[in-house]
Design a protein around this nucleic acid. Structure first.
Lengths: 320, 320
DNA sequence: AGGGGTTAAGTTACCCGTAACGTAGTTGTG
DNA sequence: CACAACTACGTTACGGGTAACTTAACCCCT
């Protein structure tokens, strides 16, 4: 007991005792067992469960980096769960991770299975849903409005005169933010009298090569598209490479627009038309909101990270 | 106690009792507290601590994906630690994560602080050092021989007649695998009578933009380099874009070689000269070795994932 | 000298799941 | 029918840290 007091530095012991205890700690290589503390219910753990769809998609890797780095500065650890875009995986992971008594959970996406939702509500711990901004979250939410982001791009591209527009993305069982962007995009294009031809790569990761072959498939199916909107910049770059390889000039023969303003865009010769989102900041903000909640500081329960359309030069630069 | 037996399905109860217990479980939304089980010492936890330098570098994101996905299939969870390439961060993280009684640790790199090494040795749990192949690991090791991988590229480039060669990479406080590759590379180039001019971007992440500006700095300092070896493909792509922007033809005016065979290489118009390593498999193998050890199955304590030089077409294709 | 206050250190109980053991009640066998 | 063998379920104790409480020793003041 006295040793416990010394290690926690809470006072009530003499200097002489402190020295003796510390000497034993060093001699034995003693490391405290935090499980015991948490188990006894005296304090909550420093685990934060973090679910992420996949790390092959650079945007999620950045979000996770933002979360874990910020949690680390507060002495908290991420317990990772890669859900592979399925609600069942997420549910299984939630059940397991809750059994470890985490201090909180950060989940990607607003959609959860009914059982998952029940568990989350009953858990009694803070839950932050990131990525999709969610005006009526289970508990807290950080992200952007993906529908609006897609809508803005749709409005921008149609304002340049594009009407026959392609979309290349990936498709999973679960509705997700990319679907929301596509919905917003279609609404804007429809509203301007245009049409969106969709090419979805099933169950693939939203990265370079699916962008490449998705573009090939799209252009075979719909050779007349004037412009292609991609799920993200990595896919857009893959598509751009496909078009270049086929001798198509950008933006003269075909326009290219991505999403996310990923690092690769910083070195491309033409500024990629895209939508800037600070993925790192999104993750950091989620971690900060979690910490604020855990220390009972006032915190918003909903934070819009915002986005910014990047006109770029991979689309034509004025109407017609 | 009977409830515990039912939940574990270990037998010794009647069907009638089972039904009553399960009804209560559903009614109460009961979730077991695994902390108690582990704490009591009846079984080990299903945490595996995983330290990774950063996730901005795509190779590490892939390694982590391989680890976590494979661990997940065994019902284990990764507790993440981003060490930002510093031994002190790693040491702090090891101390914390060990206090959670993980079943094992997977660490990136073979270098650890003395205190970290002590803690690892005393922990009594399996420790796998990944990335750098380590013939005398603390416990187990999975990776490739980075020195050899750099050496092979050096030999290949000099075999093509290159002698005045640049290197662009990042630099951190800690010696790491990229340093090993560079050492191997320099040895091969020296051996062939060539010279390596190094351009290190301090404390930056090994991704596109540092490759771009590092190339600019290198070419200002040493305009005569005929060929540049990069820390990885992302940096190589950044450099390639810089060269293209400056009107340098590749490989006629300058040769480009990367490392890692990252996804972006799959869509580049010229096959990037690089070195293929299966990062995902590396992570999966580490997770499999960990699981084998935890279930007392026979497992090698050292696995070489191997690499394969990709000649590519971003370097000249024969001597002189 | 004796009572109240203070400090340092020790004791007890608790957290929850399960191993180990105990105990009814039932079934089977010679 | 007596006794062993088994089944179903109950009881106790334990793990490591700490809150809450107790005890011992000492100090100061009147």
């Amino acid at each position: 007991m006295t040793a416990s007091r010394v290690l926690r530095g809470e006072g009530g012991y003499s200097e002489n005792t402190r020295v003796k205890v510390m000497a034993q700690v060093d001699a034995l290589g003693y490391l405290p067992n935090r499980l015991a503390t948490v188990f006894a219910g005296d304090q909550s753990s420093t685990f934060i469960g973090v679910s992420i769809p996949d790390l092959g998609n650079e945007v999620f890797a950045q979000v996770l980096e933002g979360i874990d780095r910020k949690l680390g500065t507060f002495g908290y650890q991420s317990v990772l769960g890669l859900t592979q875009h399925t609600l069942q995986e997420e549910e299984n992971w939630i059940r397991t991770v809750l059994s470890w008594q985490p201090a909180g959970l950060i989940l990607t996406g607003r959609y959860h299975s009914p059982r998952a939702t029940d568990m989350l509500r009953n858990s009694g711990i803070p839950v932050i849903e990131i990525w999709d901004l969610n005006s009526s979250p289970l508990d807290m939410s950080v992200g952007i409005n993906h529908f609006d982001s897609g809508f803005d791009m749709g409005r921008y591209l149609t304002s340049l005169g594009y009407r026959n527009i392609g979309y290349v993305g990936t498709s999973h069982d679960t509705a997700n933010a990319a679907t929301e962007r596509l919905n917003g995009f279609c609404k804007a294009v429809d509203g301007a009298g245009g049409e969106v031809i969709k090419q979805l790569c099933l169950h693939d990761t939203a990265t370079y090569y699916p962008g490449f072959y998705g573009t090939e498939q799209l252009l075979v199916a719909a050779p007349a598209v004037e412009c292609i909107y991609y799920q993200n910049d990595a896919m857009a770059f893959g598509g751009l490479q496909y078009c270049s390889a086929k001798g198509l000039s950008i933006p003269n023969d075909i326009g290219i627009a991505g999403w996310g303003d990923l690092p690769i865009a910083s070195v491309m010769s033409k500024r990629l038309t895209s939508c800037h989102v600070s993925h790192l900041k999104l993750g950091q903000t989620a971690a900060e909101m979690m910490m604020a909640r855990l220390t009972d500081e006032p915190a918003p329960n909903c934070t819009d990270i915002g986005f910014r359309l990047i006109p770029g030069s991979t689309v034509r630069n004025s109407g017609i």
